[in-house]
């Protein structure tokens, strides 16, 4: 726990606008990358980031310093993204996969190889096209660097489900980057 976090949170709670801007400047970048890749588009990421910080502003009273302010905000952002994805999923008419189900992967045998030099743009586009459920696990594990047990905790699924979703995401990315999907 960091005393500086507690002090910053306290200043924000007392309506110190400069303190809240300090909080935003310190954490917006990391959270934006998360929400951008979880949501899959810039427009939705902008709205999500705003919502996350607005929610944080309202909830700072519940921050007790049990974890760092960054971790607290990150969890808040993940939960917000999951709510958003679930809401979007509920609205969608075409079926994707749920956030915790173990769906089928692309067949391994029918896919030509991924080019050895994958461009960042192609990879970003392919990540954005992943189904919401496996994209969330993939982003947290492969992009954000969390272990499967941590991903499971963040997403509210088992470690095994996190593994299978990441594997599924990789198989889909493989298919997309090979040009067959």
């Amino acid at each position: 726990m960091r005393a500086v976090d507690l002090e910053l949170a306290q200043r924000c709670r007392h309506g110190d606008a400069e303190a809240f801007e300090e909080l935003y400047r310190a954490h917006a970048g990391r959270l934006y990358n998360l929400v951008f890749r979880m949501a899959g588009s810039q427009a939705e990421a902008d709205d999500l980031l705003q919502d996350v910080f607005l929610h944080a502003h309202r909830k700072l009273g519940s921050f007790r310093g049990d974890s760092s302010l960054g971790t607290w905000l990150y969890r808040l952002a993940v939960n917000h993204c999951l709510d958003f994805l679930r809401g979007r999923q509920a609205k969608m008419t075409r079926a994707t996969d749920s956030l915790d189900e173990e769906g089928a992967s692309e067949p391994a045998t029918t896919v030509p190889s991924v080019p050895t030099a994958v461009s960042r743009i192609d990879l970003e586009r392919a990540i954005a096209r992943l189904p919401d459920g496996c994209r969330a696990a993939f982003v947290l594990h492969d992009v954000e660097g969390y272990e499967h047990n941590e991903v499971g905790r963040l997403l509210g699924v088992s470690e095994g489900t996190s593994k299978s979703q990441v594997h599924k995401a990789r198989m889909k990315l493989r298919a997309m980057l090979s040009g067959i999907a």
Binding site: E21, Y24, A28, G29, Y32, N33, F36, Q42, A45, D46, L49, Q50, A108, V111, S113, V114, P115, T116, V118, R120, L123, E124, D142, V143, R170, M171, L173, R174, L177, S178
Partner: peptide, 26 residues
């Protein structure tokens, strides 16, 4: 081939650039 492709994807993921929120978000 799957192992090779997964390794390529893993390596490419590490090169992803950071996105920066637009000023109007703040």
């Amino acid at each position: 081939a799957v192992v090779t492709d997964f390794s390529v994807i893993r390596a490419a993921t590490l090169t992803l650039e950071a996105h920066v929120p637009r000023p109007d978000v703040w």
